[in-house]
Amino acid sequence: MPFPDEPTHVDVVGYRPQWPEEFKSLAAVLRGALGDHAVGIDHVGSTSVPGLPAKNCIDVQVRMRSVDKAQCVPLLSAIGFRCRPEPWNCCEVSAWGVFKQRLALSVPDLVDYGQIKAPATEVLMAAAEGWASRTGWGGATGT
């Protein structure tokens, strides 16, 4: 869910060749702010896939040695970021972004990419729903 001052409507736009450079600039800012706290900074999401239409929003995954909000939130706040309240935002994440990047490198044809990614997404979501059911997890409003 967006913050109250964020737009709730987004448009998917055609691929923009400047997205990789925008990511590099953003990654440099993040690296400068986080220093050694960040193990890696990855361009993930649809904007990381050359030729793929996407929301005009660069998705970044920052891999941390540990998620320590007391240390990292002030560092990110200093460069204009806000801490999202969702529990998934403050925990270890899967390698989904790495999977999509490797898939994009291995399968440059967008039709083939989509035919592989769609069933992989279904498998991932089925596994996530099974885990949520087994553990009783209900998202931000659940337990």
Results as ranks from 00 to 15, higher is better:
A126G: 01
A126Q: 14
G35L: 08
M64G: 03
A54G: 03
P85K: 08
T47I: 10
L76G: 06
L76F: 08
D42R: 14
S46T: 09
G45C: 15
E86V: 11
D42H: 15
R65P: 00
A70F: 07
A95L: 08
V39N: 04
G138K: 05
R84A: 13
F81R: 09
E92R: 14
V98G: 02
A120S: 10
F81H: 15
V44M: 03
A38H: 04
S66A: 14
G138Y: 04
L105P: 00
C90D: 06
V44D: 11
L52W: 06
R63H: 08
S77M: 07
E122V: 11
Q101P: 01
V123W: 03
M64H: 07
S66L: 05
R65T: 10
C90Y: 01
V49D: 06
G114H: 03
G136Y: 05
M64L: 15
I58L: 05
A128P: 00
E129Q: 09
M125D: 04
L76H: 08
V98W: 05
C90R: 12
A126E: 12
G138S: 08
S77L: 12
I79T: 11
I116D: 04
I79H: 08
G139V: 01
P108N: 11
T135F: 07
H37A: 13
A120V: 13
K117W: 00
W137K: 00
V60Q: 08
G35H: 09
P119Y: 10
A118Q: 13
A54T: 08
S133A: 15
S133G: 05
K100E: 14
V39S: 14
A95D: 15
R63C: 06
A128D: 03
A95K: 09
P74G: 13
V60G: 02
V73Q: 13
F81Y: 15
S48C: 06
A120R: 09
D109C: 12
H37E: 15
V98N: 02
I41L: 07
C57Y: 00
N56M: 00
C72A: 09
A38N: 03
G130W: 01
G45L: 11
Q71W: 00
Q101Y: 05
C90E: 04
N56I: 00
E122W: 01
L103W: 02
V39M: 09
T47M: 12
S94V: 04
T47N: 07
P85S: 15
K117Y: 00
I41G: 07
G80M: 09
R134E: 12
V39G: 04
P85Y: 04
G45R: 14
P50M: 11
V98L: 10
W137A: 14
Y113G: 10
S46W: 13
W96L: 11
A126I: 00
G40Q: 11
C91N: 04
L110M: 05
R102G: 08
S46L: 10
